[in-house]
């Protein structure tokens, strides 16, 4: 049956995830998001839409933000992947994680991993963004709980802390 034929084609993928070398097998049609969640049990990235519209699955691929629901798992071959599980440094939260906590920037928390990754990418690139730049950088991430106010403020506060730390 055709199903069997499509199902059993699996590709070996080798990449780094959050600094660790990992190897896994993936069906050719599997999204990178599903591979991270189901093969590697990294369920921080979420599927909110599966069409690249909500940003809940945002990860860094070679330093750039990507919707992992829009990538096939085999496309990760040789890439450096960072997920929300990898943005803390050891037992020290990333300043964004800390300011999100202190600034009550999450309510239900399901969009939070995507926002943290997108915000990290922004601040890595632009350490002193304006409010408008923050809002546009995060416009690919949907939050339905907060109205974005406390998210934007927490990113602003993290930017201040990161600039202070790098001085």
């Amino acid at each position: 049956m055709s199903n069997d034929a499509t199902r059993r084609s699996r590709t070996h993928v080798s990449c780094t995830v959050n600094g660790d070398q990992v190897d896994f097998l993936a069906d050719d049609g599997t999204s990178l998001l599903d591979a991270l969640r189901d093969e590697l049990d990294l369920t921080g990235a979420k599927e909110g839409c599966g069409t690249g519209d909500c940003g809940a699955c945002t990860i860094l691929v070679d330093g750039r933000i990507n919707c992992s629901c829009l990538m096939f798992a085999p496309e990760a071959e040789g890439c450096e992947i960072v997920t929300v599980e990898g943005i803390a440094e050891g037992d020290h939260l990333h300043p964004l994680q800390q300011t999100f906590l202190e600034g009550a920037a999450l309510q239900c928390g399901v969009c939070t991993p995507g926002f943290l990754v997108s915000a990290k990418a922004l601040l890595d690139e632009n350490p002193d963004p304006t409010e408008t730049e923050i809002r546009y950088a995060l416009a690919g991430n949907l939050c339905r709980c907060t109205g974005y106010d406390k998210i934007v403020r927490s990113v602003q506060e993290a930017a201040v802390q990161l600039r202070g730390a790098s001085r």
């Binding site: 839409c49 995060l138 416009a139 690919g140 339905r144 974005y148």
Partner: peptide
Amino acid sequence: SFLDYRVPVASDLPMI
């Protein structure tokens, strides 16, 4: 879809 059923994104809103 969230592309066509468009909920507010961060750049649509001011501080509240």
